[in-house]
Design a protein around this nucleic acid. Structure first.
Length: 436
RNA sequence: GGAGGAAUGGCCGAGUGGUUGAAGGCGGCGGUCUUGAAAACCGUUAGACGGGGAACCGUCUCGGGGGUUCGAAUCCCUCUUCCUCCGCCA
C-alpha cells in the first residue's frame, strides 16, 4: 500500500508505476484522488458536527446536574438542537464509511513505485541477468548421450511416484518415497541449518492463516484466485512469507537491529491460469515445501538494499554449496508484481529444460507490506521517544522442494541412471552417497 | 461440542452512563540532589485521521462490528480471542 500523501502529491509517479508494472491503471489513480478529496471534505464536515454535538452533550450534562432531574425550557431546547445535529451526522457518517471503503479498495490495488534503477520491461523476457555461476567441475549438463530428465530418472529409481500422486490428489500431485524422500528433507534441513548459522531465527508458523494476513502481505485481494480458501474464510499460504511478515503486524517494535526470520513450511498454490503449463514432473505443483527468509528492519533505503543483497547471497550460498549452476536476474518492472521495489529471481540450471528454471524469488518491498500490516517501529534516530514509522520488509526463498530436486537429480545423474548425493547433504541422509 | 468467566495505554491494574484519552503502580525519558551511582523527590511518557506555515485546533480509538442515548470504557446485540469445568481427540 502506498502512502496516501505520496499519491496526492505525486499522482503522475503512481500512474507511471501502473504502466511499467502493468498493475492497476492510471484511471484508478484518478478515481482514488477524486474519492479521497470528497472523503476529506466529508470528514471535515463530520468532525465539525461531531465537535458541536460534543459541546451540546457537555452542556446537557452540566444543566441536568444543576436541575437535579427537573425540566426546563433551556434544557428542552438543547436536546432538540442535539437531536438535529445527530440526524445530519448520521447521513454524513454513512457517506464517510462508503467513501473510506471505496478509497481503500482502490488503494489496495495500486502498485508500489519500483526502484528507478531497476529494469523496465513488459514481462519475464525482459529481465536482466545480473550474474551467472557454475562450479567448473559441475558445469550445466545437456540431456544427451542417454542422460535422462528427472521424471525418467526418479521413476526408474522408484523415488517419485507421479501416477499414484495423481490418483490421490489429482493433477500436479506426486509422492516422493524412500531415498527420494530422504533427499527431499535433507535439502530442506541443510538450507535451514545454513540460515540458522547466519543468524536467522527459526520459526514454526501456521500455514492456514486469516484473510488479514493475506491482504497484509499483498496476496489479496489481487491474486485471490491463486489461493485455497477454506469454508471458514481462512487461506492456505503459498509461502511462509505470509505468516512471517505478518508476525509483528499491528505492533510498534523497538527495532535495534534487523529482525531475521526463517521458516520451513508447506506451501499451497492453485496455479489457476497455468493449465497445460509445466504439467509434467516436479516443476509446477500444488503443494510443496519451502524454507523462506524474511527480514524486517527500519525504513532506510541503503540498509534495505544491503539486506536485499544479503538474502540473495544466502540463497546463492546454498546453491553454491550444492554446486548447482544458477543465474541471478533482476526482474523487470512488468514481472515484479504489485508490491515490489526491487526483485531478483534466482534460476537454477535444469538440464531437462535446457535452460534455467526459477527456484528462488527475492523481493525488497520497502513499506508496501508494513503499511497494509500496520507494522511499525519507533525511530529513535532523533533521540527521545521517537516517531513511529512503517518498517521495511524483505523476503527470499532459501530452498524449495521438490523443484530444486529437478536440478539436483538431473545434474548429479550418472551414466548408469543412479544419482550421486551432493556431499554436504550426506550427513542428513545417514551417509548415503548414491541413490541407485 | 456443552456450561460459565474475561478482554482497558509498553506492562500491571482502577473504573457500571456526563470535563475519563482514561486514577494508581511498574517500566521509559528529562531534571533536582550526589564526586559518581543508587535511593528519594519533581516533571514527562499512546496511536491514527482531518485542518493550519507554525504554535495549535478538531475528530476517532478502552478486543472487532452494530445498537440504545443529548452523551457509552460503562447498558444491549453480535463476532473474535483467552481462561476454567465437562465431553471428544493426534
Amino acid at each position: 500500500m502506498l502512502d496516501p500523501k505520496f499519491v496526492r502529491e505525486n499522482p503522475d509517479v503512481v500512474k507511471e508505476a501502473t504502466r511499467v508494472k502493468r498493475v492497476g491503471s492510471p484511471e484508478m489513480v484518478d478515481s482514488w484522488l477524486a474519492i479521497d478529496a470528497t472523503r476529506r471534505n466529508v470528514q471535515a464536515q463530520s468532525d465539525n458536527l461531531r465537535a458541536e454535538q460534543n459541546r451540546l452533550g457537555e452542556q446537557v450534562g452540566r444543566m441536568k446536574r444543576e436541575l437535579r432531574g427537573q425540566s426546563s425550557p433551556e434544557l428542552e431546547q438543547l436536546l432538540a438542537a442535539a437531536n438535529g445535529i445527530k440526524e445530519k451526522q448520521e447521513a454524513l457518517s454513512a457517506d464517510r464509511t462508503r467513501l473510506e471503503a471505496e478509497a481503500q479498495a482502490l488503494m489496495l490495488q495500486l502498485p508500489a513505485i519500483p526502484d528507478p534503477s531497476w529494469p523496465v520491461g513488459k514481462d519475464e523476457t525482459e529481465n536482466v541477468v545480473a550474474r551467472v555461476w557454475a562450479d567448473p567441475e559441475r558445469p550445466p549438463l545437456r540431456l544427451e548421450n542417454g542422460r535422462k530428465d528427472h521424471v525418467a530418472l526418479s521413476k526408474a529409481l522408484g523415488i517419485v511416484d507421479f501416477e499414484r500422486g495423481v490418483k490421490l490428489a489429482g493433477s500436479r500431485s506426486y509422492v516422493v518415497r524412500g531415498l527420494g524422500a530422504r533427499l527431499y528433507w535433507a535439502v530442506l534441513r541443510f538450507a535451514q541449518e545454513m540460515l540458522i548459522g547466519r543468524g536467522y531465527e527459526q520459526m514454526v508458523v501456521p500455514v492456514l492463516v486469516s484473510e488479514e494476513c493475506m491482504i497484509g502481505t499483498g496476496y489479496f485481494p489481487t491474486g485471490r484466485d491463486q489461493a485455497y480458501i477454506t469454508q471458514d474464510g481462512s487461506a492456505l499460504v503459498g509461502t511462509s512469507e505470509v505468516p512471517l511478515a505478518s508476525f509483528y503486524g499491528e505492533e510498534i517494535l523497538e527495532l535495534d537491529q534487523p529482525i531475521r526470520l526463517c521458516a520451513l513450511s508447506t506451501c499451497f498454490r492453485r496455479e489457476a491460469g497455468a493449465a497445460g503449463k509445466d504439467t509434467a514432473g516436479l516443476y509446477r505443483v500444488h503443494q510443496f515445501d519451502k524454507v523462506e527468509q524474511v527480514v524486517i528492519h527500519r525504513a532506510d533505503d541503503a540498509e534495505h538494499i544491503q539486506l536485499h543483497e544479503e538474502i540473495i547471497a544466502n540463497a546463492e550460498a546454498i546453491l553454491q554449496a550444492l554446486r548447482l549452476p544458477y543465474r541471478v536476474s533482476m526482474n523487470c518492472t512488468g514481472d515484479m508484481g504489485q508490491g515490489k521495489w526491487r526483485m531478483y529471481d534466482i534460476e537454477a540450471w535444469m538440464p531437462s529444460r535446457n535452460g534455467y528454471g526459477e527456484t528462488h524469488s527475492g523481493s525488497a518491498l520497502r513499506d508496501f507490506q508494513s503499511r497494509r500490516l500496520n507494522l511499525r517501529y519507533r525511530d529513535k534516530a532523533g533521540g527521545g521517544k521517537g516517531e513511529t514509522r512503517f518498517c521495511y520488509t524483505l523476503n527470499n526463498t532459501a530452498i524449495a522442494c521438490p523443484r530444486v530436486l529437478i536440478s539436483i537429480m538431473e545434474q548429479y545423474q550418472n551414466a548408469d541412471g543412479s544419482v550421486t548425493v551432493p556431499d554436504l547433504l550426506r550427513p542428513y541422509m545417514g551417509g548415503i552417497e548414491v541413490i541407485r
